[in-house]
């Protein structure tokens, strides 16, 4: 035994706290960049004015105020939601490859939105959002019933149920798009690549509310999730009600992923990657993992959105595509360099 044994401290967190602060600062920087960089060049001074001394008669100010600010905020909100939903999903299913889409949430939103466009002629982004939310909730409910989340949750069953529902829903989506006119298809494909463009206050407010609720629920569950992660038996003997905790976590996932997908279209990869990055930095403690996944995902989405505007200039590339383009190779490197943890 080492001589220093008695001096071992059980300090549990200062490093993790500072890391989180650093990430928040980085995210704030990225958000600022997102306000100043856009497909229409606006001088830095004018942007600053728009933020600090808003003048509604100035068209540049209007643009910053009505487009860039809500868009940046939405990127943060969507990212945070996807990151936390992904971390919960991976913990819940004990599957390192799980992403929030596994609950059929994305497919549900997709089908509902394509149906809304084709059958009801819906064409506003905020109306998409409502339909997307309803579809996500319905799909999740179906998966919940099929996968038996209520009784002792079996991760394999949930994943299979999610996969089955997703396949069926995507088939329906294809059926609708193939039998509709070009306009419907065109509107749908713009939603389906995942984009933050043109989402104004009308989308931002309800989505933010939902996401805040989902995040609050998730963070409340953190310790209980840590306990359940030790296994059904230990969880119960430590005083957790595993079925209740898992059901609440599933609810949080549906709210978070559903809101994010409804707002921005299916953005894959963030929910998968951000939790892994977070776990690599802070380990598997949900108390830290969830806040880290939240900030990292928000940072990634904002960065991807800004890069999409820079690379695509004078047009732009949808954030869903950017995330996949950047995230894909990055994730491969991650997998090759470091072992992906077993859950």
């Amino acid at each position: 035994m080492s001589v220093g044994a008695s001096t071992v401290t059980l300090e549990r967190s200062p490093r993790r706290l500072w890391g989180l602060v650093a990430l928040v600062l980085l995210t704030a920087l990225a958000a600022l960049a997102s306000l100043f960089i856009g497909s229409r060049p606006i001088p830095v001074a004018v942007t600053l004015d728009a933020l600090l001394a808003y003048d509604p008669s100035n068209s540049a100010h209007l643009l910053v105020h009505h487009l860039r600010v809500p868009r940046t905020l939405l990127a943060l909100v969507v990212g945070a939601a996807l990151g936390v939903a992904g971390a919960l999903m991976q913990g819940l299913t004990r599957n390192p490859l799980a992403d929030p889409g596994l609950f059929g949430v994305n497919a549900g939103a997709t089908t509902a939105i394509v149906a809304a466009i084709a059958f009801f002629g819906v064409d506003s982004v905020s109306a998409y959002t409502s339909f997307g939310l309803i579809g996500a909730a319905l799909a999740a409910l179906a998966v919940y019933r099929l996968g038996g989340v209520g009784g002792g949750l079996n991760p394999v069953r949930v994943v299979l149920a999610g996969a089955a529902i997703t396949v069926v829903l995507l088939a329906i989506t294809h059926l609708i798009t193939l039998n509709s006119d070009v306009q419907v298809f065109d509107r749908f494909r713009h939603w389906a690549v995942g984009s933050l463009q043109g989402r104004g206050q009308s989308v931002l407010l309800p989505i933010t509310l939902l996401v805040v609720l989902g995040l609050a629920l998730s963070l409340t569950l953190a310790r209980a999730l840590d306990t359940v992660a030790l296994g059904e038996d230990l969880g119960r003997s430590l005083g957790v009600h595993p079925v209740l905790v898992r059901s609440l976590a599933a609810l949080a996932i549906v709210v978070l992923a559903g809101a994010a997908t409804a707002a921005a279209g299916p953005i894959s990869f963030i929910g998968l990657t951000a939790p892994h990055l977070a776990r690599f930095i802070v380990g598997p403690e949900h108390r830290w993992l969830l806040p880290y996944a939240l900030v990292i995902a928000a940072l990634l989405v904002v960065m991807a959105d800004v890069l999409g505007r820079v690379i695509g200039y004078p047009g732009e590339i949808g954030v869903g595509i950017m995330v996949a383009l950047l995230g894909g190779p990055f994730f491969v490197v991650l997998v090759r360099r470091w072992r992906l943890v077993q859950l």
């Binding site: 992660a229 030790l230 296994g231 038996d233 230990l234 003997s237 598997p284 943890v341 077993q342």
Partner: peptide, 9 residues
Amino acid sequence: PQGAQAPDG
């Protein structure tokens, strides 16, 4: 319980 398993890391 028997054979308790801790999450990786």
